[in-house]
Design a protein around this nucleic acid. Structure first.
Length: 437
RNA sequence: GUGGCCAUAGCUCAAUGGCAGAGCGUCUGACUGUGGAUCAGAAGGCUGCGGGUUCGACACCCGUUGGCCACCCCA
């Protein structure tokens, strides 16, 4: 025999075992239900894209994290998808016949070669919902409303969706007189406001050789309290880009006021920055305040991205839920409903002895035909062993059909949590379930 | 990509440079129509991997891989 190979998975990737999968399926199911309730349709795309589809979309830093996946003898340069947004824009450009506004959702894995940490993996699922073909701020309001509805459905209480506008950030740069090449670093510093405070941001900017005068002007704007539309408008009255952005956000604010989303769950925050290069309008990011695990959702408007694939550009907005982080938070806060069990099996049908295999099998199949998840013992081991197995798998009930029960056409139903047992006619088992076991 | 901490039985962790251990879990039996409790017993290890120092390394040194944490960035 050849020497054994250490079984391992690639760095930052993991197996998800059945009990965890049940939780995941619950979370994904909830998200999907809300997506559909808002009129989004499912889409699937290949995990591999032609490399050139992905290049030049995310910005230089992000591009370094893209995995290449070319076959040894392949003629095409392929990469694992980095997100679901660029594949969407590719689809929209390829199928002009799609009815607009095109609303699609996609729940699928993406790959980023980052250094793994808690809540950060190299292979992770994103749940995206986007609206293609609407310039209206109502589309953005729908996205923000949906973010709230999804998180609320999952049981989150203390979360805030922060809203800003790329145009305002651009305006801030212009207003402060910051040279273009400094803008990227500038935004990154601004984004840390909440984390390192006003002084921390100033310090970082000073270190980056940004003139004090520029810093002063920026901080004057960025340090404004949330939702301070009036002050911002006054200060930046002569910066057209900022005015456009403010107009958009004020419209969005009006729509959100009528949306039913509680005021505590969204906030206009002029210091929130999103890194991806393609955003052009409103941007969103949701953070939970309880355990600090980074952002749970991120998104925004990217009106020009589709234009990279076709002559005509199509205004688009949407968001992405980071389901891995959502799950990590839900684990930490034990947010799963009791109905999410540790197994899908509802009843374990024991096999008393070889002679009674056929009886147990018929009973199991009858239950299955009635829509009940029934597992059949595969060995006529001692009853003790079979019950132990069922208990270890956390199956709620066991059925015992020995010679006595079978002679009377009955079965013993054992509640494995309480130990309580009841005799039920074999023909009545499925009905007993429907009445609520 | 930069820096720090860590890696011993399935899990949680011990072991002055001197015989690799405990608790929990697993398996078997006491219990041939019933899991959890109790008791008795058993299995389980190239101490992540590769070098080095040493009479002797789980321990010290170097490298490497992986995990975690902080940056960077991000879902």
């Amino acid at each position: 025999m050849s020497p054994k190979i250490q079984p391992r998975v690639p760095r930052g990737m993991r197996d998800i075992l059945p009990q965890k999968m049940l939780q995941r399926q619950y979370v994904i199911g909830q998200v999907e239900k809300v997506f559909q309730r808002f009129g989004f349709e499912p889409l699937q795309t290949p995990v591999l894209e032609l490399r050139e589809m992905l290049m030049g979309k995310y910005g230089e830093d992000a591009e370094k994290l893209i995995y290449d996946a070319k076959h040894r003898e392949g003629k095409e340069d392929l990469s694992l998808r980095y997100d679901l947004t660029v594949p969407l824009t590719r689809v929209v450009a390829m199928y002009p016949e799609l009815v607009k506004p095109f609303k699609r959702y996609q729940i699928a894995p993406v790959w980023r070669a980052e250094r793994p940490q808690k809540g950060r993996y190299r292979e992770f699922y994103q749940c995206d919902a986007d609206i293609v073909g609407s310039k209206s701020m109502l589309a953005d309001a729908e996205i923000v409303t949906m973010i709230y509805t999804v998180l609320e459905a999952l049981g989150f209480k203390s979360f805030v969706t922060k809203i800003n506008n790329r145009k305002i950030l651009t305006g801030i740069g212009q207003y402060a007189g910051a040279p273009n090449e400094m803008l990227g670093g500038l935004y990154r510093s601004i984004d840390k406001l909440e984390k390192i405070g006003v002084d921390g941001v100033r310090e970082e900017m000073a270190k980056a050789q940004i003139p004090t005068k520029v810093i002063d002007r920026i901080m004057e704007l960025v340090a404004l309290p949330p939702n301070a539309f009036g002050e911002l408008r006054e200060l930046m009255g002569n910066v057209p880009a900022a005015m456009d952005g403010l107009d958009e956000l004020e419209q969005l604010a009006t729509f959100l006021g009528d949306s039913g989303v509680p005021r505590a769950n969204y906030q206009f925050d002029f210091s929130m920055v999103r890194g991806l290069a393609y955003y052009t309008g409103p941007i969103y990011e949701t953070v939970v305040t309880e355990p600090k695990i980074g952002s749970l959702t991120g998104g925004g408007r990217y009106d020009e991205l589709i234009g990279l694939f076709m002559n005509q550009s199509i205004p688009t907005t949407g968001t992405s839920f980071g389901i891995e982080r959502i799950i990590d938070v839900m684990d930490e806060l034990a947010m799963y409903p009791a109905s999410i069990g540790k197994t899908v099996t509802q009843v374990f049908v024991t096999v008393f002895n070889r002679d009674l295999i056929g009886v147990s099998m018929r009973v199991a199949n009858a239950l299955r035909a009635a829509g009940i998840n029934a597992e059949l013992a595969l060995d006529a081991d001692g009853l003790g062993k079979q019950l132990k197995y069922a208990a270890a798998k956390a199956i709620p009930f066991a059925l015992i059909i020995g010679p006595d029960e079978n002679a009377a056409q009955q079965a013993t139903l054992r509640d494995l949590a309480s130990g309580e047992q009841t005799l039920i006619a074999q023909s009545e088992l499925a009905n007993a379930w429907k009445r609520g076991t």
